[in-house]
Design a binder for these strands. Structure first.
Lengths: 164, 164
DNA sequence: CGGATTCGTTGGGCCGGCCAACGGTATTTC
DNA sequence: GAAATACCGTTGGCCGGCCCAACGAATCCG
């Protein structure tokens, strides 16, 4: 049997207890799995998580500048350029100069963008269902609530950097 | 005030609701924060998360081969080489050929490794305390339990890859 | 008007995660 | 006991995520 490399803890009956209970470790593992599942699902539409996130943000906030999108989704302006360019190339969003503020690019959802977003949302939702398949709906809500509080540590906004 | 780029949702009152409730998204954000906190803490000892994880694994499992370490911690054999080399260079572990199986490297903890591990464990624990500062002890245990079940989806071992 | 700030863009850098391949070693098989 | 098979450690390379620095164009503020 070609065992090769089967991924983390494929058949290991044990594991370092000391680190396995660390939230940071568990979060990393869980995030990796979630990222993999969602990425694979979204790949069928030729998109990645960022694309889907930006697309969703545009759909929710209407025509928005890239900078604001970047702040909303939480990604670097530099990467936003690439993402919007990709979305524009695929005809999912339109990038028109804002007449009110000619520095800004008004990013808006196209008709096809709306269609694709519907599909990617379904794909993302299904991937998340698989990710949390071991949880009951109530537990999943619990997890979401706990994670939300971890992601946003109280009101200390300035402290939360996006470092290293 | 130079606002510059302050990281994800530094002071954004809103955010795309649709994606903010996705476990995969939340996990990614939470993991990023946890990684940052732990990485900063461990950096004071010149270590990263992998180093600490491997060190802990060695401490728990006694002298182990690198391959088994890789499976336990869940990292690629290639990266394990670098990690063990780093740890060996700093005198935290010993890498001696296994007389029973000359293919293997028996990685064992050194005296200084034990000392450093004690410090890094404390650093990691404190970082995790900060990470989960918004949670009560009971909630933290809950989170750990939920994440553990997400990370290990039932008994389907083969499925759980670390793909990318 | 003039200084500071913001926007979009380009360029580069660091880190983590993974696969492919190779020589050395052990195990299985005939 | 020799061949086939599988595993171990190692090297090299690829890709994605995340971040900072800098620059021209445009806007805001005094």
């Amino acid at each position: 049997m070609g065992r090769r490399y089967r991924g983390p803890m494929a058949d290991a009956p044990y594991a370092p207890r000391r680190i396995r209970v660390l939230p940071s470790w568990l979060l990393g593992r869980a995030a990796a799995r979630g990222h993999r599942l969602v990425a694979e699902a979204l790949a069928t539409e030729g998109m990645r998580m960022v694309h889907h996130a930006v697309l969703s943000a545009v759909a929710e906030s209407g025509p928005v500048s890239q900078a604001e999108l970047g702040r909303t989704v939480g990604i670097d302006p530099k990467d936003m350029v690439t993402v919007v360019t990709d979305l524009q190339r695929d005809g999912l969003v339109t990038r028109t100069p804002d007449p009110a503020d000619r520095r800004k690019n008004a990013v808006a959802l196209s008709a096809q963008g709306r269609r694709v977003l519907r599909r990617t949302q379904r794909l993302g939702d299904r991937a998340n269902d698989e990710l949390t398949a071991a949880l009951t709906p109530a537990e999943r809500e619990q997890l979401i609530a706990l994670l939300t509080r971890i992601v946003r540590p109280a009101g200390s906004a300035g402290e939360a950097a996006a470092g290293g």
